[in-house]
Design a binder for these strands. Structure first.
Lengths: 336, 336
DNA sequence: ATGAAAGCGCTAACAG
DNA sequence: CTGTTAGCGCTTTCAT
């Protein structure tokens, strides 16, 4: 089966290419009858337009780029679902690019996007990203960009985030109310804005409850699971070991639970745990895990909706379009 | 910053467009000196080629399509990582399209791909897919396609699968050896080839151990978590309730554990569990979950590698390029 | 070693 | 209402 194009269609129909094009695009210039004929023949010959040819002609690629650190993470995979749900209604496709938490990768991807592969970008920055020239370049080049979850404060564009400060504050307060007084905080990045805000919320809660923050309870985790396991184990073995722990990111759940099991620490009696996590499976852990759950699907959806607003209306400015959505503290047995 | 194209570059360099193009593509016709000048200016002006313009000119879109039921699933997200790892080395991008287990969606996506949006396709079919004309159409249209995990037997093209029959057989045998004699099997689709092979492996293992299969132990699950929970609960409440259970798909883990908890069934004493699952978190469930783990990353990688072979060499035929990789039965406490 | 020109598939002025 | 034509950015003969 040869691939059929608009010229073939025109030939078959004894019409000009432009008439066919207009009919296909439901132009008011074309008679109903012709439209029907064209549509019918197109269907019969299995005509599928080449999106990139339209793209070239000044229109859109009809692709949006989604740049994230990782897919194997329930926050991001749910967010993708949200993004995809709106892209679909707009006839757009989603190009997913993974940075694997590498700044270099992130820069390369955004650079490449400037060639016109995508019409707009949804971005959640890598843990390594400390400066944002590559992002500003992209925007200067005319590509609308919306951050979701992990944003760069310095870049002036729309951001969909959650109340990281407040939710960490709430989680910490919750642990304090559960009688934890030596609470550890596991961070993933010193530069990431969300990580810092969570840390600040934690610190403020301690302060408000007259608990002195202690550096030894604040741990910088890495991207390496084994390494993190060792760090956490060490944390839980020291003198004055913590009796509460807050993990600022989902992937720390496994090392924490594993360490507790290996050290035979009783949860929640000896250690109360809260994780930032969207894992559905939190409910069936034993003890079930208290989580801060972000509205991942909703966030993806909102970010995409905003991006399409900008795409559809060049006058719509993304600057100052910041939305902060609430996360939920879901109390379960691990902090009980 | 205006977007710069090859014409701007040529103007700046006092060269013709074609010379610049050739220099950029490292043609033997161009002198080293000119190449260097061009490359340097391109870098300075931040020139990024438009992939779709090249695409139009008879080359490639440099996109591959990955069509899967769902991203929020550890098998698929790990497979995506594998796919992406090879796409990246080839300078390709990955367009991820979700069917959400709907045949209609799957058909629409594949149809759309025929317009040239992607150069090749990696597919894992939906649970609803019972006939494969849409896939054959795509292939007939000249797009190479490789199945991974969930394939259609009737379509003649490369398939990367796992030993579904054997692993279900192994899992069942394992449960029998653990003294389970009423073993339930949870299926997700009556049409899906992998689901059926798993079912057959289960049935064969029962037969080989002189256990009579019983329809009431074979459950067809749906796409709806709540529904599945109820089905499982009912299964576990009947007279002669099973003392072993095999779930053919990861997402059934939560409903199973939840049902056990709600019914206060002791695992593994009263019920031994095995799930087909790539959840990292299997280790920290309580009891830790015995799984059949598929080499998801590897499978994605192999599927992509095969696809690129076909893309790079039009003579390379994907027919008969079938690979079956072994899954691992990882015994943990839930079947202990 | 370099350049002119055609054309990939499509859309959009502009004419008729 | 329909057709002619130019051109989107790029590659690729075919000259020079």
């Amino acid at each position: 089966m040869k691939h059929i194009n608009i010229k073939d269609l025109a030939l078959e129909l004894n019409l000009s290419v432009s008439t066919v094009s207009k009919a296909l695009n439901d132009s008011y210039e074309i008679s109903e009858e012709t439209k029907n004929r064209v549509l019918e023949t197109a269907a019969r010959l299995n005509y599928v337009p080449n999106p990139y040819a339209s793209s070239l002609r000044g229109r859109k690629s009809k692709n949006i780029g989604v740049v994230i650190p990782e897919v194997a993470d329930s926050f991001f995979s749910l967010a993708i679902n949200g993004i995809e749900s709106v892209a679909k209604t707009k006839g757009y496709h989603v190009l997913i690019c993974l940075t694997h938490e590498s700044f270099e990768n992130e820069r390369t991807i955004l650079k490449e996007f400037q060639g016109g592969r995508v019409d707009g970008v949804l971005l959640s920055v890598s843990t390594e990203t400390t400066q944002c020239d590559h992002i500003n370049d992209l925007i200067a080049n005319g590509l609308p960009l919306v951050f979701f979850d992990r944003a760069c404060d310095e870049v002036e564009t729309a951001k969909i985030t959650t109340d990281d400060f407040e939710s960490a504050y709430k989680a910490t307060t919750h642990l304090i109310q559960q009688k934890a007084d030596r609470i550890a905080f596991l961070s993933i990045s010193k530069s990431l804005s969300i990580s810092n805000k969570r840390l600040e919320g934690y610190l403020k809660a301690l302060e408000d409850h007259d608990i002195k923050a202690d550096q030894k309870y604040i741990i910088d985790c890495s991207n390496d699971a084994e390494q993190n396991y060792l760090l956490i184990k060490k944390l839980l073995q020291q003198k004055n070991k913590p009796n509460g722990i807050i993990a600022s990111v989902e992937k720390l759940t496994t090392p924490i639970y594993t360490a507790c099991k290996d050290l035979e620490m009783k949860v929640p009696e000896e250690l109360k745990i809260v994780c930032f996590s969207n894992l559905e499976i939190a409910t069936i852990l034993n003890p079930s895990l208290t989580t801060i759950t972000q509205p991942a699907f909703e966030m993806g959806k909102m970010a995409a909706t905003l991006l399409f607003k900008a795409l559809e209306n060049r006058n719509f400015s993304l600057v100052k379009e910041d939305f902060m959505i609430q996360s939920a503290l879901v109390v379960r047995d691990s902090s009980g």
